[in-house]
Simulated assay, not measured.
Amino acid sequence: MSFWKNQPVHLAAAIIAGGAAGIVSGLVKLGWENVLPPRTEERDATNPPQTLLQQFGVPAKVTHATYHYSGHALPWVSYVIHFGFSTTFAVLYQIIGEKLPWIKKDAGTWFGLAIWIAFHLGIMPAMGTVPSAKDQPEEEHVSEALGHIAWMVTNDLVGAEVYRRLVAEKNK
């Protein structure tokens, strides 16, 4: 695998592919967290996206706003942050990975772990959004580390296929 790919990046295709991958992978990550919840119910009463917004001065009545579906109150504001994060990193991964193939090593596994380390063990604890890494339960580390791998592998697979199809269509 070379360090730098000399082929041009089809930017529009990479953005569309990353966006599509980010939506699908965001759904995968939500599903993952239903199987292996990263936080206790008490810590999830105000989840990290809600906490982050409140740190920026957004009132709790907004951060905890919900919509109702099938008898469930669902936190739409948290979902906006969740999918915003997912699609942003999926688009960046797709664009950067087209120029730097080593980013996509092992289908994005290492990139996903790097994002988990950076945000869940570094940035968010430093901001006070989540407890320090040593104060997070082991179950949270396991769920988040494996969930970030599943999330990024999904970005890799979906993004690569959508990008390939868009570029092939463009080159017809």
Rank of each mutant, 00 (worst) to 15 (best):
L121F: 12
G18F: 14
G19F: 09
N6V: 04
H68F: 00
V62T: 12
L92A: 15
A73L: 06
H10A: 15
S132V: 03
K29I: 01
L146N: 06
R165F: 08
V9G: 02
A114H: 02
E41K: 13
V142S: 03
N6H: 13
I115R: 00
L166A: 04
A118T: 13
T88K: 05
Q7T: 14
G159D: 12
L113F: 09
A133T: 11
G71Q: 10
P137A: 12
P131V: 07
G26S: 07
V167A: 07
L36S: 14
G19A: 00
V28R: 09
T129Y: 01
P38E: 04
R165W: 05
I123E: 09
Y163Q: 12
H10T: 11
T66K: 00
A65Y: 06
W4E: 10
D156C: 00
G31H: 04
P8L: 11
L157K: 06
T51V: 14
A126S: 09
Q50L: 03
H10G: 11
K172Q: 14
F83G: 07
I103M: 14
V24F: 09
V9I: 15
H82M: 01
M1A: 09
P49S: 06
I149P: 02
V77E: 05
Q7L: 11
M124I: 01
E41I: 10
A126W: 15
V158K: 05
I149Y: 11
P49F: 02
F85S: 14
W116R: 03
K134I: 15
Q94K: 09
L11T: 08
H10Q: 15
Q54I: 00
P101L: 05
F119S: 07
V91C: 04
V62K: 03
F119K: 07
L157T: 01
F3N: 11
A150F: 09
A150K: 04
T109W: 14
V58C: 07
L157I: 12
T129I: 11
G19Y: 05
V162D: 03
G57K: 08
L100F: 12
P101I: 06
E98D: 09
S70C: 02
I117W: 14
A150Q: 03
A13D: 15
F56M: 15
L92R: 10
F56G: 10
P131Q: 10
T51W: 07
K172R: 15
